[in-house]
Design a protein around this nucleic acid. Structure first.
Lengths: 206, 206
DNA sequence: TTCTCGGGAGAACGGTTGTTTACTGAATGT
DNA sequence: ACATTCAGTAAACAACCGTTCTCCCGAGAA
């Protein structure tokens, strides 16, 4: 008589090992790319039989897109907060600090996205591309709500938002490569880059 | 009694099959990443025995760094020409056109660089990073030669050059993803991005 | 010519891969 | 209480992998 929304011990255990597979894969992907990640490699790290993999994913590419959506999907809410800042200078600091904390708390996720964005697995590439396009849309919408956007064409606004998102991805990669000790240096460089873009934006309509 | 500079049939044949290995690898890497590229896979595509691979490279990672230097090394001369343009607007058109032609004539090389820049093989990542840093240095030197660079700190100039290079890599990736039909659209977007940066550069010292 | 060097061929090795098939047993619905 | 569903197991499969060893034979030096 239990309703469909009750979790049940059964489905809870299933999603538990599913998450274990995702976590193990993410860890293994720190030193290789998805197209070389083996099915057995993942199950061995978790401690389950190789065939158990098929109960959750069709292949490692399928696992990859799940990893993309879990990593980037939960980020839209966080991004919205930083974009709510109206001051141009304050938003720059907020955004860079957000990226820095993201890389600090979960570097493996960031590395995975950076690596597979242009990686060898097509479905994963497309999943990342779609998510980044969603981010750019949200940034463009936030820009459009501001008074500085007056006189801007929609295409130019979309271009500006695209540069903004790409700059943030590049900054995240720079944080990764620099390590914890070079964090402050990357931060200041990123802030200057954003300031350069902000200046260009102010004088766009001349 | 032949002098050391005479090629000889022996060394010519060796570099011939070495180049064949590089070409075959580049073609195979269009649909996968280097960390999953097999030694036998490459030799099979060329038509030589698997053991012949060891006469030229230690492993596939070694082949990767050779591929990086062959791809990016020959580009420094071409870049120098575009940077010689003094006009700010003309240089933008020249640069974007150069990237477009590069992607058109050898897309596999561009895809390889984009894919392995953050890929799973450390030595290759470092080789690409070193080459891109060289590009940024050249761009910074070209900027420093201009009158607009007056009052700029060396660090800010380096930052500007870094953004320039990263923007070009991103543009090359955009050309790849868009395909031949969307070439004009990517070109105009890239030109607007460069113009945005150029505007910010003009008002940097306020 | 004769000797040496070295790129390439061939076979074999132990190990790993993805996938299939049949099976177990505990949580679930009736 | 019983029947069913299904996540996970176990074993086997052919195919592939990187690497080692031995041999071959033509180019280049003597």
């Amino acid at each position: 008589m239990s309703h469909s929304h009750t979790v049940g011990v059964r489905q809870a255990q299933k999603q538990k090992t599913r998450q274990a597979l995702l976590d193990a894969a993410l860890q293994l992907l720190e030193e290789q790319s998805l197209s070389s990640l083996g099915l057995r490699e993942v199950t061995r790290a978790v401690g389950v039989a190789p065939t158990a993999f098929y109960r959750h994913f069709r292949d490692t590419a399928d696992l990859g897109v799940a990893l993309v959506e879990q990593t980037l999907g939960s980020l839209h809410a966080t991004i919205g907060e930083a974009l709510a800042e109206s001051g141009d200078g304050v938003r720059i600091d907020r955004t860079v600090a957000l990226i820095a904390e993201l890389v600090r708390t979960s570097p493996a996720h960031v590395r995975f996205i950076a690596r597979e964005r242009h990686g060898g697995v097509q479905p994963v590439r497309e999943a990342i591309g779609a998510q980044l396009r969603r981010f750019a849309d949200e940034v463009a919408a936030a820009f459009a709500r501001e008074p500085e956007a007056a006189g801007w064409s929609e295409a130019d606004l979309r271009m500006l938002a695209g540069v903004y998102v790409d700059l943030m991805v590049m900054t995240a990669c720079a944080f990764l490569e620099a390590g914890p000790e070079g964090e402050e240096q990357v931060s200041s460089a990123a802030r200057r880059q954003l300031r350069l873009m902000s200046l260009g934006r102010r004088h766009w309509l001349d």
